[in-house]
Design a protein around this nucleic acid. Structure first.
Lengths: 115, 115
DNA sequence: TCAAGTACGGATAAATTTGTCCGTATTATA
DNA sequence: TATAATACGGACAAATTTATCCGTACTTGA
């Protein structure tokens, strides 16, 4: 696994949030789990642009950061389910408000982002 | 300058927000400008861990994304000031709420983030 | 005149994140 | 008996972001 070479900077609350939510697909993952799409395979199918490897990595980070928890059922074939922790739940209103901001300004932003 | 090789993904509002705010120091920069720390030199001194080069790049992106605007006074020595656009202003409550979330959960998060 | 302040930018290296290709194991279905 | 589904992980390549080191130009103050 990759080992950090420089310390993370978490001076302020903003940084804590960003540290947890940065990652190309993390918000999607949290949002999916919130909407009952909770098994690895389901998540992959729901977010087809992301590779399995990356989703796995980001799910693992979300678990490590206390946003998601995963339950592994001891059955064959294997079954795993992710769910929001209490901390993860507390993130939902914020995610919702950032999404709202994005949608409200989509027209303007799309133009600017795509040069 | 660096040229992207893969298209950006902005399916949802969350992504629009992340696209604009991702970058190690962007939230700090926006927050500083909101608090009247608006000249390049001031910003560098306020955020000493960031290199000038990176701050310049992120400021430029924030301007390109319509969050900040910069006014260049034609004086010697040169003087430049950044300010929030209307779009940038609309981001303030959201930044505030993410910061609040981070601070409220700092103890827990610090522990988790630092392994 | 020399050092330090104002501000900006190119070229390249280092760090980090994301993607690709390989592999493991078990079970149900065609 | 293949094929696909379940789920996971190592090794490495490619893309992207951040940092370092070089340079420009002008002005003020010691």
């Amino acid at each position: 696994m990759y080992e950090r070479k420089t310390p993370v900077t978490i001076d302020c609350g903003l940084h804590l949030f960003m540290e947890v939510m940065n990652g190309k697909w993390k918000i999607n993952l949290v949002w999916c789990v919130y909407n009952e799409i909770k098994r690895p395979g389901e998540l992959r199918r729901k977010i087809p642009n992301a590779t399995r490897r990356v989703l796995e990595g980001q799910l693992k980070q979300l678990v490590n950061h206390g946003i998601l928890s995963n339950k592994s059922y001891d059955v064959k074939p294997p079954k795993v389910e992710y769910s929001l922790t209490e901390l993860g739940e507390s993130l939902i209103p914020i995610i919702r408000s950032t999404a709202k901001w994005g949608e409200e300004n989509r027209e303007k932003l799309e133009k600017l982002i795509l040069e």
